[in-house]
Design a binder for these strands. Structure first.
Lengths: 338, 338
DNA sequence: CATATTGCAGAGAGCGCTCTCAACCGATTC
DNA sequence: GAATCGGTTGAGAGCGCTCTCTGCAATATG
């Protein structure tokens, strides 16, 4: 067992080599101003010479901070392991933000409640992290509220389904969906259907609500099929919709992946897009540019959502109080499918 | 600043409540056998009552272990943030394996060498993790070798480009590609082209090598275009190929994403698949089932690759010596595109 | 019955670091 | 010349935990 950690230099070593006390060495390492320049230099060159790296565990022990943030994701969330890079983008955003302040990202997958749920809860409340970002929650998951109540700074990515004081970062899904549907209506479409997302996730629920609102506004009947954000479910839903109303001339899909599935189903049913049926998606994933035809879709800034969540949780961990809701803007990107 | 950590119970508290010494409480918490049952129970109920969770920092300080493993990914790697869920699958695999032994996963993105590179190196060699899994390396990245030399247990995901003793987990890309191309040849295709992956990544290089070998074996000329594993690059490469040799009757793409791009380009060029041109991909991503036509492809067990990498690094961290190369099997999945 | 052996609990020494507090020192002021 | 005062540095007390070593019964052995 070759433990490299064994012979790592300690602050004590650095201090000795620089001919100062441990306290002073610590000051230099932590950038305190009140150290005489020539002493500072001596310490720094000792650090350099020995290749000293502070021991995080020792530091955490006294500061009571861990300098790491947990990113908790529902393993079952279709978005996490489905076709689209939603997950990756969120991670990238969080990662960028944490990196900037030299914090670590601890990733935790949580299965459908059970042991892994408890594990995450224990870990986070156990003081192993300075805060947690939770995303892709299904149903009325009690985790955010629990952690929050235990005093752990928590920020959710996406509105919570239960009444809760846990702050979150999201886009205005309802409003964005509404705008998308209105676009369809404004361009002369009469029978607009929707492929909704899972109804146990706020993104799914709110986008459907937006669709309903827009339809109601213009006095039209809703036509809904539910998917789970994946391509396959989108294709399936589209077929159902076509069966329910062969006359439909537009469809709003609550995710680009489902929209692509719909495009495929439409093609197989012999409908032309956008001539016979217009299609609008949601997300503006990379691939939306390359579908046939290119997809008109609602762009949401996924990476920024991650960044913001990180920034918020960092602020909470720093003792600030933050606004409970932070909504980022969306934009309807018009391409050829609608 | 509401520091929840402040009033967390310590082992001392547990010991006091159970009427035993700290040492004994520690034994119980760590599952030592040599504790009398009735004492054990007393301690456990104290733990329960107080909601005690061990302080990882304190524990690490003395054990010199951190119980966490770093997963390092090249942020620039196209596979990480491109259309396919490669990244997610690796993470899932690693995560599953670590969870089983209650270790944490610390995710680190590393940009194209520079500050973030140093940061990762410092962090890992600084004893903050018990080991590191590095994947999606571009070019001859020195990071794996450096960490390894510094005594950090390292396992790479994918063969390294430089001569190195760092162990890795991968599939036999060359062999798999060869088999795929041979399938094309065996089914009567004569002019087989390839869309290769990036030539600064082993997966890209080796798959091209396999293609070349198969072509050479049957005395045919190679026709190569290079992509970067993304859809777009696949479509672009396909157009080039079609320009280079309008007579080609098959193409082997080094990733499913590129294969899908190729399918699209082929369709736009008016070629029928598989009638005019046969297409074979690589990966067997979820979406390969849903392309038009469904994609014949080489399946590689991505999640298992992650699992294995985790398992290996854990073994190294445990002091075992492991086999330097671990290859997982691939399988040609025949669907309709070839 | 004395002694060796075993089984289990407690005492106590740190792990490497931060941070408070006291000490010191040259410089300024009365 | 004594008192005061910013500006620095050092000493030392832990942070919460593990682990070795010691101590002490209870049991087995000669």
């Amino acid at each position: 067992m070759v433990m490299s950690g064994r012979d790592r230099p300690t602050l004590e070593n650095v201090a000795q080599r620089a001919g100062v006390s441990r306290a002073t060495a610590s000051r230099v390492v932590n950038g305190s101003t009140s150290v005489a320049p020539h002493i500072r230099d001596k310490v720094l060159s000792a650090v350099e010479a020995l290749g000293y790296v502070p021991n995080q565990a020792a530091r955490s022990l006294v500061t009571q901070r861990t300098d790491s943030i947990a990113l908790v994701a529902s393993e079952t969330a279709s978005r996490v392991f489905s076709d689209d890079p939603f997950f990756s983008s969120i991670i990238r955003g969080v990662s960028l933000e944490l990196e900037a302040v030299d914090k670590q990202l601890v990733l935790m997958m949580v299965g459908p409640s059970g042991p892994s749920h408890d594990r995450v809860e224990r870990y986070c409340t156990g003081g192993h992290v300075d805060g947690a970002i939770i995303f892709s929650m299904h149903g009325a998951d009690p985790l955010p509220e629990r952690l929050s109540r235990a005093g752990v700074p928590v920020v959710c990515n996406g509105r919570l389904l239960i009444q809760s004081s846990v702050p979150y970062v999201d886009v205005d899904n309802e409003d964005a969906a509404r705008a998308a549907v209105r676009h369809l209506l404004d361009t002369g479409r009469r029978r607009v259907a929707t492929i909704a997302g899972p109804q146990d996730m706020s993104a799914g629920i709110d986008r459907l609500k937006g669709y309903r609102a827009a339809m109601q506004d213009s006095g039209r009947r809703s036509l809904v099929a539910v998917g789970d954000f994946t391509r396959q479910s989108g294709a399936l839903a589209m077929s159902q919709l076509l069966g329910d109303d062969p006359q439909l001339d537009a469809v709003f899909a609550a995710s680009d992946a489902m929209a692509e599935g719909a495009l495929r189903a439409l093609r197989q049913a012999g409908r032309r897009v956008p001539d016979d049926v217009a299609v609008v998606g949601f997300d503006d994933m990379d691939f939306a540019r390359d579908t046939e035809p290119p997809l008109t879709t609602v762009r949401q800034p996924i990476t920024d959502l991650g960044r913001m969540a990180a920034r918020q949780v960092l602020r909470m961990a720093g003792g600030e109080t933050i606004e409970p809701v932070l909504l980022l803007p969306t934009e309807l990107v018009k391409r050829e499918s609608a």
